[in-house]
Amino acid sequence: MFLNQFLFLAAILFCIGVYGVLTRKNGVLVLMSIELILNAVNINLVAFGAFHQHLSGQVFALFVIAVAAAEVGVGLAIVLLIYRNRRSINVAEANILKG
């Protein structure tokens, strides 16, 4: 087994996630794409942990999972709030910051 096969998988998933973030309008879908990105990072962490025979990689992957849980919780709350106020979870419409 090559180290690269895991890293390539992670890289591909990461790029797909980036594509999702960039093209999706729906808030929930953007959140999901972010999850994909985080998972790609996790694969890297675990793979390097296994490669170096060290537990740090796995531990950090666990931390990332926990942070992802927090992120989804808050992100979903925000999405629901937007839905409640605008009857839509289209991020394209949430552009009050427009200059």
Binding site: V21, L22, T23, K25, V91, A92, N95, L97, K98
Partner: peptide, 8 residues
């Protein structure tokens, strides 16, 4: 034009 308020 750059600052569209669009996260994307």
């Amino acid at each position: 034009g750059m600052q569209s308020g669009q996260v994307r």
